[in-house]
Design a protein around this nucleic acid. Structure first.
Length: 256
DNA sequence: CGGTGGGGACGTCAGAACCG
DNA sequence: CGGTTCTGACGTCCCCACCG
């Protein structure tokens, strides 16, 4: 089971969970519509757990309790799906696992820390599998973001994109840390010492080259996430202004 | 068509940050 | 605390649009 976490932006400050149904968009045949469970959030955010591939989807809110609360009901909202973690199906219902995923979502937006966490080997492996999926002709979306809720506000968390390149150290470089002679014993002559030094340097440069590439990629994602956040907040602001306007009108009508 | 400037990607270095 | 990783800064290259 692969978990994806996304967030809706149209939900409001409900104290009860909001139901929703997934409406897939540009899904390839055979993927099916997917399902969604929405976990109640605070400050207008509900986290949606879906089980469809890593691509843009649409979520349609379904009002259960108080239809007047969500004025955007029925509107479709395109969101992007984030792969959070891959776990065994046996573990998928495990509370501790869900808690772990929530912790990831709730982490503060420390750029370095977030990126550091999300650069774990597991994520890299999954990114590799993503890139292999995209070779089938499916665009997996541009920016992959995670919209999470912190104790004092909302923020996006960038996660690995689809263009992660496999990192391979050439054999001669990878084993260059301790050089041995034909007999297998360590070599310590000045010539071999300099050779070892140059090999070490080559390896360091190679690693740093890859690190710089990855760093730029993550930075770009982070900037995109921030831009997305601006867009979402502007949208929310607009919605709230409209809501206020509607309430004012309602109030005036009652008064008259 | 050649010169030029902007923008993006890259490699390298240095130093900060992280980790065992 | 030493080794490793991350990232800002800098220089370079390439591509593209614009202009004379």
């Amino acid at each position: 089971m692969v978990y994806f976490d996304v967030a809706t932006t149209y939900s409001t400050n409900l104290s009860t969970p909001i139901a929703a149904k997934l409406v897939t968009k540009n899904m390839s045949a055979g993927n099916g519509p997917g399902t969604a469970d929405i976990e109640n959030g605070t400050q207008g955010i509900s986290v949606v757990h879906v089980s469809i591939p890593n691509q843009a989807i649409q979520v349609q809110p379904v009002i259960q309790a108080n239809p007047t609360v969500i004025h955007s009901a029925g509107n479709y909202q395109t969101i992007q799906v984030v792969r959070v973690a891959t776990v065994d199906d046996d573990l998928s219902s495990d509370d501790s696992d869900a808690k772990k995923r929530r912790e990831i979502l709730a982490r503060r937006p420390s750029y370095r820390k977030i990126l550091n966490d999300l650069s774990s080997p597991v994520n890299k492996m999954e990114d590799d599998s993503n890139s292999s999926q995209s070779q089938d002709g499916q665009e997996c979306g541009t920016t992959i973001v995670q919209y999470a809720q912190g104790p004092d506000g909302q923020f996006y968390i960038p996660v690995g994109g689809t263009n992660v390149q496999a990192y391979q150290i050439p054999g001669s470089l990878a084993q260059g840390v301790v050089m041995t002679g034909v007999t297998g014993s360590p070599i310590s002559s000045p010539q071999h010492m300099s050779e070892e030094g140059s090999r070490k340097r080559e390896l360091r440069l190679l690693k740093n080259r890859e690190a710089a590439r990855e760093c730029r990629r993550k930075k770009k994602e982070y900037v995109k996430c921030l831009e997305n956040r601006v867009a979402v907040l502007e949208n929310q602001n607009k919605t709230l202004i409209e809501e206020l306007k509607a309430l004012k009108e309602l109030y005036c009508q009652k008064d008259a």
